[in-house]
């Protein structure tokens, strides 16, 4: 039987595939069905926060920052309560990261403010002496892509039944309705900021990337 298999590439390939696939099914699938349900109080991101999350991904913040607090005292002392599976229920994709060149950001919203982020993104070393993080001045001139963020929110609502528009959850509505909500949310952040460039743009109804990413970072709690 073995010798026959060595000369029949097709069945040989089937053999390899079965071995690989079986292992995958056994190791992955059951945990999958256990797909964690959201922890009480976990809400999907608002459209502005999602747009900020896209900025976070666009500049690969996750290449240097984790969003996963492990259940060790040294980590909970530094970053707060350890992460629960259910807290990530609306994260598509997950942003745990794999390297902590900078600190964890899972609960950064608890201890940093809009003002802090604004200065930090312009010149990290002025806020944290010795920081090796690059500045992100381009976030003050690039515009956030609200339309794509809305498209994503609507997609997850339709395809994965993410509870937008339900009682106590973020409201989505039509794109026009959503834009109004986004502007109101952005206003609260722009008011706390100093950059004249961002303020001027906002007066014309434009939202810069920096506003969106601060909205996202403030939502991480």
């Amino acid at each position: 039987m073995f010798h026959w298999l060595e000369k029949n590439p097709f069945f040989f390939a089937v053999g390899i595939f079965v071995v690989i696939a079986y292992a995958g099914v056994i190791t992955i699938l059951p945990d999958f069905m256990n797909s964690a349900r959201p922890v009480v109080g976990t809400k999907p991101y608002t459209v502005l926060q999602l747009a900020g999350r896209h900025v976070y991904i666009k500049d690969s913040c996750n290449a240097c920052h984790s969003q996963l607090i492990r259940p060790f005292k040294s980590e909970t002392d530094r970053y707060g309560m350890y992460s629960l599976s259910g807290e990530y229920a609306y994260d598509r994709p997950f942003l745990w990261g794999s390297k902590r060149t900078g600190p964890d950001l899972m609960r950064v919203g608890n201890y940093r403010t809009t003002d802090w982020h604004e200065h930090h993104m312009l010149d990290p070393a002025s806020v944290v002496p010795g920081s090796i993080m690059p500045h992100y001045k381009h976030m003050f001139s690039n515009e956030a892509d609200i339309e794509t963020a809305y498209a994503e929110a609507l997609t997850v609502k339709k395809v994965f039944n993410t509870p937008y528009d339900e009682a106590g959850m973020p409201k989505l509505g039509t794109f026009d309705e959503s834009k109004k909500i986004v502007l109101a949310e952005a206003k609260a952040i722009v008011d706390d900021m100093k950059s004249p460039e961002v303020k001027e743009a906002f007066a014309k109804g434009k939202i810069k990337e920096i506003v969106a990413i601060i909205a996202y970072l403030n939502s991480l709690k």
């Binding site: 797909s35 964690a36 807290e87 609306y90 994260d91 598509r92 994709p93 892509d145 994965f160 794109f175």
Partner: peptide
């Protein structure tokens, strides 16, 4: 996302898996 909603960047997509499953 564009194929579902007709809005936003056409190349953008969202993962089928969420959070821990995605990880």
């Amino acid at each position: 996302t564009y194929l579902v909603t007709g809005l936003g960047d056409w190349w953008h997509s969202v993962s089928m898996y969420a959070g821990t499953n995605d990880a």
